[in-house]
Structures are given as structure tokens and as C-alpha cells.
Amino acid sequence: MTLIQVLTNPNGFFEEKMKTEVEMKTPLLIVLLIAVLGAINAVIVTQKIMEILPPEAAAFASIGAIAGGIGAFIGAIIMWVIYSGVFYAISSILGGEGTFKRVLEVVAYGFIPSIASGIIGIIVMATSFSFENFDMQNPELLEQAMLNDPTMKMSVIVGILFTLWSANIWIFGLVHARRLSVKNAAISILVPVGLYILYTASKFIGA
């Protein structure tokens, strides 16, 4: 088995994976890599904001960047556990069997597309996005301006597409990890993921 199979043939990958004991080293590395990418992105955003603040506020740029990076890093790990918990809970209602640890394992593999998404996000934020024309005095106007920015909208669309790719992987992962039908696995995944996508899209549609 190779990690490429997760992307190209998730059903076959997880079918083989279930023949072995739960192994958390690779899943942890995947999640940690995503956490690092998220931290880098947060640092870039914080630095860009601090660059256009008054000198007295910009003095805290390094502290803000570090805090943002740490927050994003921890947030990625927390989201892994939350996603796994939600999928586990819904699949339990639908008759799923199997351990939570196994769900943690397959959910981590499903995050592999987020690695590419994270790299794209860093490139976009570092090269194409600027806060220079934003009003930093009003947080609400700043958020509105960011939601209206074409670069941000394109970044969100790309993120949604990668999330759907992850959802496809998670469905097959749950089929094998929780011994579910494809239908019940799809319900377990697509209900929470669909709500997340609708919420994210609604913010930009309404902007």
C-alpha cells in the first residue's frame, strides 16, 4: 500500500488497511504536516496585517505571528479529533462497529488532500494577497473586505473542492473502519461536511 492509493483508490487502500493493526505513526505525521502548513499560513497573515498597522502596534508583530501560528497548529490537531468524533457518533447511530482509534486513523488519511490545499493557501497568501487597501480600524469592515476579495474567494473555492475530495476518501474509510454500507457511510460523512461547506459558501455569497 502507498499513500498515492488513498487518493486514487481509497476503497482498495482501506480494504487492505483493515487487515492490519491500527497504526498511528503515519496518520500523526499527516496531521502534524497539515498543522505546520496551517501555522505557516497564520504567521504570514499576521505579519501582513502587522505591516500596515501603526508603529506602536506593529511592535507586537512577532508576538502576534507566534500566537497565530501556535493557535493554527493546535487547531488542526483539534479539528482532526472533532471530525473523527462527529463521524464516529453519526456512524454509531447508523449501526457502525469498530473502535474510535480506527476512525482517527482513517480520518487522518482523508486529510491528505489538505496538504496540497495548505500549500496552495500559503502560496496565495504570500504572493497574491495584500491588506494594504483594507480598513484595519474596523474589524467588521475588514472581514467584509476579505470576503469580497477575489483571491480569497478563489482560495475558498479551491478549499471546498479539496474538502469534497477528502469526503470521498472518508466515506470509503468509514465503510471499512465502521463496517457500514456505502450509503450509511456517505450519510455519516456528507451531513457534517455538507453543513460545513454550506456555512463557508454562505459567508462568501452573502458578502
Rank of each mutant, 00 (worst) to 15 (best):
M18F: 11
G38P: 03
I34S: 14
L29R: 07
P27V: 06
E15Q: 08
K19G: 01
E15A: 07
V45F: 09
K17I: 05
K17P: 00
A35T: 01
T20V: 04
K19H: 11
V31S: 14
I30W: 07
I44M: 02
I30R: 12
K25L: 12
E23P: 13
P27M: 01
M18N: 03
A35G: 10
A35M: 04
L37W: 08
F14S: 03
A35S: 10
V43W: 06
M18I: 14
L37M: 14
E16Q: 15
K17Q: 06
N41W: 14
A42N: 06
V31K: 09
T20F: 05
L32H: 08
E21T: 09
V43Y: 08
I40D: 09
V31A: 06
T20N: 13
A42T: 04
A42M: 13
T20L: 15
L28Q: 14
A35W: 00
I44D: 06
V22S: 15
V22P: 03
E16G: 14
L33P: 06
V43N: 07
L37I: 10
A39P: 09
V36Q: 10
V22E: 06
A35C: 04
V31N: 08
A39Q: 02
T20R: 14
I44W: 01
K25N: 10
T26H: 00
L37E: 11
M24V: 02
I40K: 13
I40E: 08
K19W: 07
V36E: 07
K19C: 07
T26A: 04
M24C: 00
G38C: 09
E21Q: 10
A39L: 08
N41Q: 13
F14Y: 01
